[in-house]
Design a protein around this nucleic acid. Structure first.
Lengths: 212, 212
DNA sequence: TAGATTGTTAATCGATTAACAATC
DNA sequence: TAGATTGTTAATCGATTAACAATC
């Protein structure tokens, strides 16, 4: 029962996970909230508050065991489990996602890509085949797919999402530049690159105005 | 002087911009905060508060003129200006960024890519040439580059960032899976894809636990 | 004018930070 | 034991929502 955790906390979890990973790589096996706070540029208080949403992972007078905390956060993030995933859209972005090997390590198994471009059909990207969009339903039904990455133009995205929900997809990793207004029990994680670039632009623009 | 605006507000600006764009496409030329709130799934109060950080863009009894508000937010976002940009890393992700044409429309001009892979040198992606990393300083100095997208492995990213700051790059669009701990006057906009996927995974995992 | 809707102040809610007793 | 550092409660800060007077 991990509900009731605020979005702000959830947002920080993967960052903790990454820093703990880095600490393990450097051979550090224990760390206090104070040291971690310096490293991550957040307050020690926030770290302790965040972690205590999930349980007491530390020990008074000692701090946190890096490996243990890493594993526990990994469990919270569901990284100890495997998740079947497809990518809709085998353009540059779809390919980039498919080629990023680390996802597989974290339990996200890319089982296929789908694209409307017939020239791509039958090709393989890191062992995952590219199919036509007409094969979506069949493939999803037969291959236990939980997650679909949406890397197609925005006008096609909502329709494809609807089709995927019907055959049991639970979560969308949405790269299309539109909101997928879906039912509440469907998870949508948006990666709106153009919005990200605009935020960068805002900050660039506003500092220029300040400094003249 | 646009400082002192909270990160929460800035984060929402590009989304307003996108929705206004969509409204213009559908031929809507005025909208009230109430209608927009339904469309965007946020409160009307928040919309009015957000916009009034920057000035009175609306009119009592009428609402907001869509085109006008779109233009004004565009100005805030710095989209009326052109920004020279390079992409470091011409792998799948670098290519995906370079190939996304809409950035150019918004004033982000990709002037070159850089990669350590010599096989790519001299190739062109959407009119932008790929150079070796040894050409970074020269190119940046001569081509008025404000923004660098970092699409290389995390262990190379900090060093490249340092070099780029020395020749005047002001902002980083960071896709490397690491924090670039840079000086405060340097802008870093992070796109950590693996963290995004982990957040999705967390939510998937926690709803499964809730529903059994 | 009457109705609609903003701009803005006040109230509420939630998240972050500070403080400290508990305890390893 | 003494020192360190957590877990947790309390205080503060900031963001969101509600309310309403101003005004088009």
């Amino acid at each position: 029962m991990k509900s009731g955790i605020s979005a702000a906390v959830i947002k920080r979890l993967p960052r903790y996970y990454r820093h703990l990973d880095e600490l393990m790589e450097s051979g550090v096996d224990r760390i206090s909230s104070g040291e971690l706070s310096k490293r991550m540029n957040i307050t020690a208080s926030q770290i302790r508050q965040d972690l205590n949403n999930f349980g007491g992972f530390g020990q008074q007078g000692y701090g946190y065991n890096v490996q243990y905390l890493y594993d526990e956060i990994g469990k919270l993030l569901g990284i100890d489990k495997q998740h079947g995933m497809i990518i809709v859209g085998a353009g540059n972005l779809g390919k980039a996602i498919a080629n990023y090997g680390n996802f597989e390590k974290r339990g996200f198994i890319i089982k296929a890509l789908f694209d409307s471009n017939t020239e791509l059909h039958g090709k393989e990207i890191r062992g995952a085949k590219v199919y036509g969009l007409d094969k979506l339903e069949e493939f999803v039904a037969e291959n236990d797919i939980e997650i679909a990455a949406i890397a197609i133009p925005k006008n096609y995205a909502p329709e494809v999402a609807e089709r995927l929900i019907k055959c049991g997809v639970k979560a969308f990793w949405n790269f299309a530049h539109t909101d997928l207004n879906l039912n509440n029990d469907i998870i949508v994680e948006n990666v709106h690159l153009s919005e990200s670039l605009m935020r960068l632009s805002y900050r660039l623009h506003s500092t220029e105005e300040r400094n003249g």
